[in-house]
Amino acid sequence: MTSPYSLPCLKRVAICGGTHGNEMSGIFLVRHWIRNPSELQRDTFCATPFLGNPHAIEKSVRYIDRDLNRTFSAEFLNSKDSESYEVRRAWEVNQIFGPKSSSQAYDFMFDFHNTTSNMGTCLIVDSEESLLSMHMCNYIQKHYTRSSCPIYLYQLAEEETNSINSVAKAGLAFELGPQPHGVLRADHLAQMRSLTACALDFIDLFNKGMLFPAFEIDAHKAVQYVDFPRYPNGEISAVVHPKLQDKDFLPLKPGDPIFQTADGEDILYEGHDITYPAFINEAAYYEKKVAFVKTEKHTFSLPALQKKF
């Protein structure tokens, strides 16, 4: 019998809301937990809540100068001087919860997000190689009963992790939608709260020595960003097709419509393989020139996991 993979106890756990200052579920919950952290207490640890981008939260905007959740790369963390508020904030977060890739970094960080896309209750991990996070996803899928929880693996090939939770040794993001930016929804608040409780229970059980057996799990791995059709001057020339809208994580086949012009002309998907689009028509991605993200659906096999004794 193969021995389980072992990792140390998770003693220092952080929960971030407001990495984007207009995604309200995490902001609301973190503010509540800062006032009353008892909900984050478990037998073996207590999670630390914090607000990711305070200035953007004050203005109810995604960011001030640049996207904070794309700012935790070596390029920005190692830069000596910057006028960008988000770069300076990344230094602060890295100093408190990191340094990134060091033995002093926090053991785990959660990051809370809302999306205008129909992503449902989505669990976001950098890659399938993040064993602890994938085990947590498997536990959540088995114990969270309100809805299915698709897994989105965001790290493209050869891409450096640059999200806020990459400062910690491991991390997981919750992406709930559809929800308009700047708006609170009680149903998504309740879902995010329950997801958090489930995830914290997993950490507590891990710390107490529970053996988590090997398993297979499906996940959607990002492979390509797809832009809107555009006129030569850069303006968008077609919108997301009604038959694609709200179909996040559902199969998109070659020849299916993906865009529609103002004249009613359909633009079809010309890929050769079935893809599973995510973040379809996300409002915040217009500036990034992303209409949706192509993903591949894979089944991954993960080894057993247990606390290092």
Rank of each mutant, 00 (worst) to 15 (best):
Y5I: 11
S6W: 00
I15N: 02
H20V: 06
N22V: 07
H32K: 15
R35L: 12
P37T: 10
S38P: 00
A47R: 02
A47P: 01
L51G: 06
E58Y: 05
V61S: 09
R62D: 05
I64A: 08
N69L: 09
E75W: 04
S82K: 06
Y85G: 07
E86R: 13
V87L: 09
R89N: 06
A90W: 03
P99R: 11
P99T: 07
K100L: 05
S101G: 02
Q104E: 15
T115I: 06
C122F: 03
V125N: 01
N138P: 00
Q141M: 13
T145D: 13
S147M: 04
S148T: 12
Y152A: 05
Y152C: 06
Y154W: 14
E160N: 10
I164T: 10
S166H: 07
V167E: 01
K169C: 00
G171R: 02
G177Y: 08
P180G: 04
P180H: 11
G182F: 10
G182I: 07
V183Y: 14
Q191P: 00
T196Y: 02
A199Q: 01
D204G: 12
K208F: 03
L211Q: 09
F212W: 09
A214R: 12
A222Q: 04
I236H: 05
V240F: 06
V240P: 02
H241D: 03
L250S: 13
L250R: 11
K253Y: 13
I258N: 02
T261P: 04
I267M: 15
H272D: 08
I274Y: 04
T275S: 10
F279M: 15
A283L: 10
Y285A: 11
Y286D: 07
E287W: 02
E287C: 11
A291C: 08
F292K: 00
K297S: 05
K297C: 08
H298A: 10
F300R: 04
Q306A: 14
Q306W: 05
